[in-house]
Computed example of a mutant assay.
Amino acid sequence: MMTNLFSSFDPMTSLYLSLNWISMMIGLIILPFSIWVIPSRINMMWIKITSILNKEFKILINMNLSKGNTTMFISLFMFILFSNFLSLFPYIFSSTSHLSLTLSLSLPLWLTFMIYGWMNNTIHMFSHLVPQGTPMILMPFMVCIETISNLIRPGTLAIRLTANMIAGHLLLTLLASTGNKLSIFMINFLIITQFLLIILESAVAIIQSYVFTILVTLYSSEIN
């Protein structure tokens, strides 16, 4: 049971079973049934968003190989966006603020791209290790730098999403914890500040899910 907002970062509800991870499915319960009815306003908005994302991802992926591939990236975007927005509600477990979730999203995708690329386009993958126009004397160093930058990609993806979600949640919690010690005027100012921060966090939830998905799409486009 969660006793304060800081416990929303704690995945353990008991010694043996982590029931807080089930909170990711709360959104399926609160979704209106009209989203599954065609036509409806929510359904039309959902189709509009997916069509825009489909056009964005097709630009980054080879047009000849993009048939059906964008569905995976759109689903990834929607899942991260859904989890980010759910974590903005008080006392709901923040799943995207844990590396165990973000790394489990980025690492399998990156590993799959690397295995496919090195097995099917080996020469093309080798060409990425040395940027065009690199002097001969710098080629060994560039190979090392490009290899390291490639290996840390899943980690940077996971840490970027986790750090942004943790930072916003902690700022909201720390500001709210000072409310019982403030005057009436300062409490009103704090409420306005919290409201603005909630709007900012909503924007961060959208931006971070979009950035995560765009970077994964860019990594996948490099193997073709």
Rank of each mutant, 00 (worst) to 15 (best):
S220K: 07
V37S: 10
S221M: 05
P11C: 03
L200N: 13
I206M: 08
P140F: 09
F93A: 01
L215V: 15
H98K: 11
M119E: 13
E201S: 06
M78A: 15
M125V: 05
L157Q: 04
H98P: 00
N54V: 00
N84Q: 13
I115R: 10
W118Y: 14
L111M: 13
W46C: 07
V216P: 00
I29L: 14
I159R: 03
I22L: 15
V204C: 05
S8N: 06
S8W: 00
S94E: 03
I38T: 13
S183N: 09
T71A: 15
S7V: 03
G168V: 06
N224D: 15
A203K: 03
N20A: 13
I206W: 07
F33M: 09
E201Q: 09
T102K: 04
V130N: 09
W46I: 08
I192E: 11
S104R: 11
T147G: 14
M139G: 06
N224S: 14
G68D: 04
F185D: 15
T147Q: 09
I22E: 12
L17N: 09
I52P: 02
F82Y: 12
L175C: 11
V211Q: 12
T217R: 04
S183H: 06
L129R: 02
S202L: 10
L111C: 08
L196Y: 14
V143Y: 10
W118T: 11
T147E: 09
L109M: 08
F6D: 05
G168L: 04
T193E: 10
S183C: 04
T50E: 14
I80V: 15
L161N: 08
Q208I: 02
P11Y: 03
L17A: 06
I47V: 13
A163P: 00
P39D: 06
K67H: 07
W46P: 00
L197K: 08
F57I: 12
N64T: 11
S95Y: 01
I47S: 14
L161M: 14
L174A: 13
H128M: 11
L157K: 00
E146P: 02
Y16V: 11
M78K: 07
S51W: 09
L175T: 08
M45C: 12
T156Q: 14
C144N: 10
S83E: 04
L200I: 10
T213H: 05
I192Y: 09
P39N: 05
M12T: 09
T213W: 01
S104F: 14
W110N: 04
T70R: 01
M78L: 15
S66P: 03
S66F: 06
